[in-house]
Nucleic acid binder design. Structure first.
Length: 215
DNA sequence: ACACGGATACTA
DNA sequence: AGTATCCGTGTC
């Protein structure tokens, strides 16, 4: 078993981190999956980022290190898993108390399940067999979407703030093979919707929404 | 197409 | 306390 990705990986800007996480393996206790879809959110200047409207999100950035899990409930139904990135953290002596340029989040949007598939199936029950579309991979419905993958892995509010670079039970493993990456506009947002900050493993059968253009 | 339902940040 | 909004999903 190889080493988890270290903190300096997340001490880069959110777009770079989102792109570089594609092909890495997310380990979550007894489950794991290859990251096949991510989105970047910038803590400054990005209206779609929580930091734009939420003081609590800005406080989170100020009080946590790069690599912390930012977990929140969306639409009252689903937990969503993000990773805090702080591109200006290297060399900074103390936190200024506010997010800065190159800080932000990476939303983990889809996984190709690799370990703990029966556990995931149990948490996702009811739906995973029934919801398989024609020609879809039978495991696609487990983790294709940020709410689905959080449910499959058992991510909860209690995981908010957890350090993904310290706890060996949760974190990311480096890529084992070269990957081809596609990019597209972000999903499901109304503000700053033109930014092409969604990254995908090209030709993956496990992504949530197929991009219109593949680049 | 539409319901589901909770955390957060507003208005008073 | 009441209201608007939100980085989705499953079922209608």
């Amino acid at each position: 078993m190889s080493e988890l990705i270290a903190r300096d990986f997340f001490q880069r800007d959110p777009v770079t981190c989102a792109r570089e996480l594609i092909g890495c393996e997310l380990v979550w206790n007894d489950c794991a999956g290859i990251v096949v879809e991510t989105e970047a959110y910038a803590a400054v200047g990005d209206e779609a980022c929580h930091t734009f409207m939420r003081p609590s999100a800005r406080a989170f950035v100020a009080s946590h290190r790069a690599g912390a899990a930012y977990v929140y409930m969306n639409y009252g139904v689903h937990w969503l898993l993000n990773v805090l990135v702080k591109g200006n953290e290297i060399g900074s002596v103390e936190n200024s108390g506010n997010p800065s340029k190159n800080d932000g989040f990476v939303l983990i949007r889809a996984l190709e399940p690799t370990r703990g598939i029966e556990k995931m199936r149990g948490r996702r029950s009811l739906v995973d067999l029934k919801n398989v579309k024609k020609n879809a991979h039978p495991l696609r419905a487990l983790c294709a979407g940020p709410g689905r993958l959080a449910q499959a892995l058992g991510v909860r509010g209690a995981d908010h703030g957890r350090d993904l670079c310290a706890d060996e039970n949760v974190g990311f493993l480096p890529r084992e093979n070269p990957v081809k990456i596609a990019r597209d506009i972000r999903i499901g947002i109304s503000k700053a919707a033109h930014l092409r900050w969604r990254f995908l493993l090209k030709n993956s059968l496990f992504i949530s929404v197929v991009p219109k253009k593949t680049t």
